[in-house]
Write a protein that binds this DNA or RNA. Structure first.
Lengths: 267, 267
DNA sequence: ATATACTATTTCATATAGTGAAATAGTATT
DNA sequence: AATACTATTTCACTATATGAAATAGTATAT
């Protein structure tokens, strides 16, 4: 009997063996977002498709560890302060960020625009570091933010270099129209991804936010895989079409510098 | 038999029922710190007192969810990028931070020094927000950092208002001497905590770092509990003993402003 | 090259620890 | 006071997590 437990299951089991509870608890954490930072037990249970009792118990564990906190008035759940600590540690100890930071700083200064380092995280791009041209010392508020893949220069660039199945999984249709310029047609997006792959950089002009333009270039690791992207972004009044070619070069040079330090060797 | 499972256990079980795996997984995450951001499986298992197999499985789950990542060269474990995202969301959605930020900004500007918001987290103070006087827009690198309780103005202030058992648990002796000025004698610390409680602010002069002075004041919630502290900090050349009294008042006024907004009513 | 010492990973039998349906308690709303 | 809702506790069951031991995988020394 025990030997036959690997029967074909009716439903797809995307989980790995031996850690259901941990995966479920993390699933609960990942539900929280900027748009809805506070959740009731019932909504969380529904969103994660967990039994209410199970969700309650997992949340109690997370609360005891400080990863979630409760609103004493509403009883609602929020992310807790321990996550601020863990996130800070994760940010400061990120090896990619350590290598990139000085390069981002000089890039931001050269271009006099904000520069970011971003990676793929789930079906979004995650801002791992940002250097504002005006405030080159501090970390921006945007570190730790997620942005949609199809409406950002970095997102499109990372998609262009992702495996087919990653791409399929990352892009849950439909493509949300964030502005007039956002690419919402899948065929047109695929075309542009091919172009990005070929030209070695990505441009997003007013696709995320009207009046905001960004240029992204790929970071390669020692296995010649694209693992991250850097970008500069700013007002369309400054990142004009005439100025874009020279900015593209600056971003690409900076990206190559970082890739080199990660052990990538071109050729 | 099942009815007698609540027998007195020889060892203290500080965990809550039903979520051992989650608590253990979080325990693994909390081991990581700035001083040692990368750990081997064996060291993690030893530090958390987990069986190596258990640690391995939990880490595999955490890795699959992106909360930890592995160094491809060494095989070592690091905190992953998902924690950057969760930490960013936790920071941005923190209600205390939302209320405090404008007050911190004006405090930093008035004093022309850096201002911080800090809470108790485990046996450290955690920096929840920081406004640098020079770069008032961005978030500093220090958000998400932990600092020792006995060597910081905020730490001493929060200790002074903590319950006796919290205090006992938080202060694991011995008190590390970070500088010449650090208070390392428990009796002397207790004396100073009493004084801080009475005077309504805390001062740390060169106790964390030589040449660095900070002044902290308490934030009260609607239950009249001290839940957080704000502080200003800077060079001892600027925060001179002569200037301290007026700075104390500014910090206290700012703290009261925040407390008021949290529903605290003095009297 | 070969042996040695180490770390990480897999296997597997076992029972503990996690699960979810149902009942209960606790709060708002009518 | 009754209703509708949300959160919390209880409890019997077994699926799920556990850890000892074996194996695979890597460096370092001989």
């Amino acid at each position: 009997m025990m030997l036959q437990t690997q029967e074909i299951e009716g439903q797809v089991t995307e989980s790995y063996p031996g850690t259901q509870a941990v995966a479920r608890a993390i699933g609960l954490l990942k539900i929280f977002n900027d748009a809805q930072p506070e959740w009731s037990l019932g909504d969380l249970a529904q969103a994660t498709r967990l039994n209410k009792t199970t969700a309650f118990r997992l949340l109690a564990a997370l609360e005891a560890e400080g990863l979630v906190m409760r609103n004493p008035l509403s009883g609602g759940y929020r992310l807790g302060v321990e996550l601020i600590a863990l996130g800070g540690c994760a940010t400061r100890s990120n090896p990619l960020r350590a290598v990139s930071r000085p390069v981002l700083e000089s890039l931001a200064q050269e271009c006099d625009e904000s520069a970011t380092l971003e990676v793929l995280a789930g079906s979004h791009v995650l801002i791992v570091d940002e250097v504002s041209s005006r405030h080159p010392m501090g970390m921006s508020q945007d570190v730790g933010s997620r942005l949609p893949l199809h409406a950002t220069a970095t997102g499109k660039l990372l998609l262009a270099h992702a495996d087919g199945d990653v791409l399929a999984e990352s892009l849950r249709l439909p493509l949300a129209a964030l502005t007039e310029q956002t690419i919402t047609d899948m065929a047109r997006l695929r075309e542009q991804l091919a172009q990005i792959r070929q030209q070695g950089f990505a441009l997003a002009a007013g696709e995320l936010e009207t009046g905001f333009v960004a240029i992204a270039a790929p970071i390669y690791d020692r296995e010649r895989q694209v693992t991250a992207a850097i970008s500069i972004g700013g007002s369309s009044l400054r990142l004009t079409p005439q100025r874009q070619p020279q900015l593209v070069v600056l971003v690409q040079v900076a990206a190559r510098q970082i890739s080199r330090q990660l052990g990538y060797w071109p050729g």
